[in-house]
Computed example of a mutant assay.
Amino acid sequence: MNPPNLGGRRMHPKFKLAKPMTLSQLGTFSSPFANFAKYVDPSGRLNFHGKAILHASGVDFTNGNSYKINMNELMLLEELGKGQYGVVQKVHHVPTNVTMAMKEIRLELDQTKLNQILMELDVLHKSTSPFIVEFYGAFFIDCVYYCMEYMDAGSLDKLYGDGVPESVLAKMALAMVKGLKFLKDELSIIHRDVKPTNVLVNTKGDVKLCDFGVSGQLEQSLAKTNIGCQSYMAPERITTAEASTYTVQSDIWSLGLSLVELALGRYPYGGGKFDSVFAQLSAIVSGEPPELPADKFSQDCRDFVAKCLNKVPTERPTYGQLLDTPWLQKYETEKVDMAGWVQDALDAKNQRILLQQQMEQAQLAEQHPMA
């Protein structure tokens, strides 16, 4: 459920930070607005013509939806992550008493990145699926900030450890397939960056897709331009001759590869087996697709992954066909303690972090022994 009162009317700040924090303290800095004159008007509003207007008090979409939220209503809690273009903060929205993830995107960017900002905002606010992170609002003050559902266990790439059991893998696959199917059927969107990093989980065991900045509109089932993480790209996206156009089946390859990584506890084309990115991509294009071991996974599970990783894109199943496979049909109704697995995975993650810190401290002590 969306927090109450975030859409439809203006909310007045009821809370001031106990310790005033400027935007510069958040790691932001003033943008070169001269480069964005066609987007930023004199009043400081960011205008994506025909789509949305962002301002200090929220975002107004041209379809009539408005989300009123601003920095004064937010209490900053901690940094969740940092990327090339900005920071993700854990924040508390005081008027609604809801904890959120706030993504900051700096604006010293090119046209492509501006398009990605708009794409993510557009996908998030239109998505009404339990398998996609909820959108709570956005605003603009030198940087674009948008607030999303806080998934308190983080992304799957930090949790799978030595690999997830088949029952948990099936529930993850179900959520991912349903989320991707929603994007395609309801929004005509292909994700284009499916990987464990972009799948979030919470301590209730919910699994949801995120990060839609490179998503693309489908035109007669084809998406044009070659954007996304190369390591998870389908073979047809890597090969030069076919990279300019590809179907939603390319996301199904990325889904299959992600499931193999989650199952094995490692990226299947990594582990020092390749001495260059070129060798890695050549293996994806020319080598045999990875498989799951028969001694650990059922034949139905292995068949599901093999269908996703078919080298011929037209022979990969649709999302509807994947949902009809015996493997997902079995786990559609079978109960799995996802919350229990998430808690165990978090405990194991914290233990790995503790051991790593202890090793680093020991190495530091060896390098600088006390006199």
Rank of each mutant, 00 (worst) to 15 (best):
182 F>S: 05
3 P>H: 01
201 V>H: 07
227 I>N: 01
16 K>H: 10
335 K>F: 02
21 M>Q: 07
332 E>A: 09
341 W>F: 15
351 Q>M: 06
302 R>E: 02
26 L>M: 12
146 Y>W: 13
216 G>T: 06
356 Q>D: 09
327 W>F: 14
279 A>L: 12
301 C>R: 08
81 G>M: 05
270 G>V: 10
52 A>E: 03
57 S>L: 08
93 H>F: 09
239 T>D: 05
245 T>Q: 11
228 G>C: 02
67 Y>D: 00
65 N>T: 04
58 G>K: 01
27 G>A: 10
116 Q>P: 02
266 R>L: 00
194 V>E: 09
225 T>D: 05
65 N>F: 01
190 I>W: 01
30 S>K: 12
115 N>Q: 15
206 D>I: 02
266 R>G: 00
50 G>P: 00
322 L>K: 07
292 L>V: 11
111 Q>P: 00
32 P>K: 12
96 T>Y: 09
145 Y>M: 11
49 H>P: 02
98 V>S: 15
2 N>L: 14
57 S>P: 00
363 Q>F: 14
85 Y>P: 07
176 M>Q: 08
229 C>Y: 02
109 L>V: 15
265 G>F: 08
327 W>M: 02
340 G>W: 10
44 G>Y: 05
225 T>Q: 04
167 S>F: 06
348 A>E: 15
14 K>Q: 07
210 C>Q: 05
352 R>I: 07
90 K>D: 03
63 N>S: 11
318 T>G: 13
224 K>T: 14
354 L>V: 07
124 L>S: 07
275 D>F: 13
294 A>D: 11
256 G>L: 08
38 K>G: 09
232 Y>D: 06
365 A>G: 11
222 L>M: 12
86 G>F: 13
326 P>R: 09
322 L>A: 08
296 K>E: 13
272 G>H: 12
366 E>M: 15
178 K>W: 00
212 F>H: 06
330 K>V: 04
280 Q>N: 13
84 Q>R: 15
353 I>E: 10
49 H>Q: 14
137 G>H: 02
330 K>S: 06
341 W>Y: 13
96 T>F: 11
116 Q>K: 12
32 P>M: 06
166 E>T: 14
314 T>D: 12
285 V>M: 13
252 I>H: 02
244 S>R: 10
110 D>G: 11
151 M>H: 06
207 V>S: 03
247 T>N: 04
322 L>G: 06
250 S>H: 07
57 S>N: 11
170 A>R: 07
357 Q>W: 02
70 N>I: 00
289 P>G: 10
26 L>I: 00
201 V>I: 13
76 L>I: 11
